[in-house]
Design a protein around this nucleic acid. Structure first.
Lengths: 343, 343
DNA sequence: TTGTATGCGTTATCAT
DNA sequence: ATGATAACGCATACAA
């Protein structure tokens, strides 16, 4: 069969383009009988509307962008991004949207973004993640007026965002380490340019202080979100002999554990380790990691939902969604309970 | 400034739409002087062509699709996909194409693909990876007639494809293990439904046999491409006391090493381990992994190039590109040479 | 070398 | 409830 167009469908169904169009976009104001007839024709012919034509006429591309502003190293080694992409992708499918991916490792890529995707009306909106604290990219994007949702923490309350409850998560970690009797608690953090890392750090400190065991500043080492970074950071921590380390991602926690083991410290015997995320590295590690679980895929799904809302009502106030975290205890903090309260 | 259109640019530059269009698509047949004038206007106004309009009028969307047909688990845990995406993304940027991502974990997603992206003319072509040996998805796509490039191995020679030289890589691994004196050599493979895994396995066997040390079939354990899969696979291997294990990815090799260490075997003392990929896990591992390096990002870039060619000349014969691999020796196979011949 | 006119496939605004 | 018609913004064959 030749190329199918709305025109052709209408013809075959014996109606006008307008009516056929209404059926396709299931708008009401079409007699059920007629609707059926059109639907049947569509079914038989396998007709699918031409994306560009829809986009041009309807002023909406039905394409959502996911922009990841992280280093190549991060994207490669942290399964977080895969999880996020998975969630976003799934949600896009469910809402009949297409996902476009932008990896912004290079400055060039970042600068091109506004022009390439926004001015060209390629995407209806953008989900951005791994942004820095006062990211120029975010300024550009907001002032360009494109519907925007950030996955992570943002300083500007005018921007919608989704993230795990970083504060609550860090608190859970602190409380757990205290609860198992650790007192010389250290943390290997993500870069403070990351909002999530900053939030977790502050919350971790506060929780410890609130419990009467303030965090020794010497026991805070800043790192990046990679395994190797955490490995070397931990080495600097070794002489200070901590009995617990909170790492800001599972991948980092794996690096922490490695550094400890290589140095002859046992986990959790000498040092208890808590990660963050509860992604595959947490289970695959030896010992399996106690970690703060966040629902990464759900985060992606919520981001899509929020973005879609924002596209429909650009003037509605920005919203922030924080997804609950929860403590998952595994062997890296519990000697006795090797089975853990795994879920 | 109001919304910019070609019309408006032409007006401001004092030329016709056609001329402005020619300048934008830099076709020749425009007096340099005029071209400059138009370019200046574009520069000043920051005009960017409307993607959908171009697509509709020009019959080309300038969007390339990347479809990853892998399990969620794989996508999450194997940095290979991130690397590939990175390469594809970069190449798309360089060629002024947009990247659209499709994660095909669910059967539903896979079935939607042809309709959603092909019939709608959303993408000009598709790069597909992690396909199975005789993947129905591939049939569908080929018979739909969309320009297609597979990253990996394909049985149908009518399909263009790009991959590392799996055969050569496996051979390098075999020769290296023999060269360091190992004779009781085992391998933890990827699933045989994966073409790349099948190729590597056969090549590995042949290389060993050719050297007069045929692979003991008992020492071949099939697994998936995950760390945990490799971990349990290795446990089955332990009683057979191999002195070397070739794993089909770095991530798998990490699982192999873990299983060995947990069982009290030293690496490389008791068992030498070789991985595949040379992605971050290889360096981050303890000990760092000897591995077969493949250029993942380049693979992505080549896939884009091939796809673009195919889009321009759909009737040209299919091509296959195999990128060279090379042995990177690190501590997991060399006791003496702890520094390794790292690059 | 430049301009004119038409078509791309759909949505949306009107009538009817 | 349905249909005719005008955008949508650009590329391109053709004419000049």
């Amino acid at each position: 069969m030749g190329k199918m167009t709305l025109e052709r469908i209408a013809e075959l169904a014996g109606v006008s383009r307008s009516t056929a169009s209404r059926v396709i976009n299931d708008q009401d104001g079409v007699r059920p009988e007629i609707r059926r007839r059109v639907l049947d024709v569509i079914d038989v012919t396998g007709y699918v509307p031409h994306a560009a034509a829809r986009s041009l006429a309807g002023q909406r591309s039905r394409i959502l962008g996911l922009a990841i502003r992280a280093t190549t190293e991060q994207v490669f080694s942290d399964p977080y991004f895969a999880g996020l992409a998975q969630g976003v992708s799934q949600a896009c499918n469910d809402d009949d949207q297409t996902l476009s991916l932008f990896l912004l490792q290079s400055a060039a890529g970042r600068e091109q973004l506004p022009a390439r995707v926004l001015r060209s009306k390629l995407v209806d909106g953008l989900i951005v993640t791994a942004t820095l604290m006062d990211d120029p990219l975010l300024w550009q994007l907001t002032e360009s007026g494109i519907p925007l949702v950030v996955v992570g923490e943002v300083s500007d309350p005018g921007i919608s965002s989704v993230d795990a409850d970083n504060r609550g998560g860090a608190r859970l970690a602190a409380e757990h380490l205290l609860a198992i009797g650790r007192r010389r608690i250290a943390t290997v953090t993500g870069p403070m340019r990351s909002g999530a890392a900053a939030t977790r750090r502050v919350a971790f400190e506060r929780a410890l202080a609130a419990a009467g065991h303030p965090l020794d500043p010497q026991l805070v080492v800043e790192s990046d979100f990679t395994e190797e970074g955490a490995y070397t950071a931990t080495q600097r921590l070794l002489p200070l002999e901590p009995d617990a380390i909170f790492a800001f991602s599972d991948r980092m926690a794996v690096g922490v554990v490695r550094a400890l083991q290589v140095a002859g410290r046992s986990v959790p015997g000498d040092v208890a380790v808590v990660g963050f995320d509860d992604l595959p590295p947490a289970r695959a590690s030896t010992p399996p990691l106690t970690t703060i679980r966040q629902e990464v895929e759900q985060t992606g799904a919520h981001a899509v939902r929020l973005l879609l809302e924002r596209i429909q009502a650009p003037d509605a106030p920005a919203r922030r969604i924080e997804l609950p975290t929860r403590l998952v205890v595994r062997a890296s903090t519990s000697v006795s309970d090797l089975v853990g309260t795994d879920s």
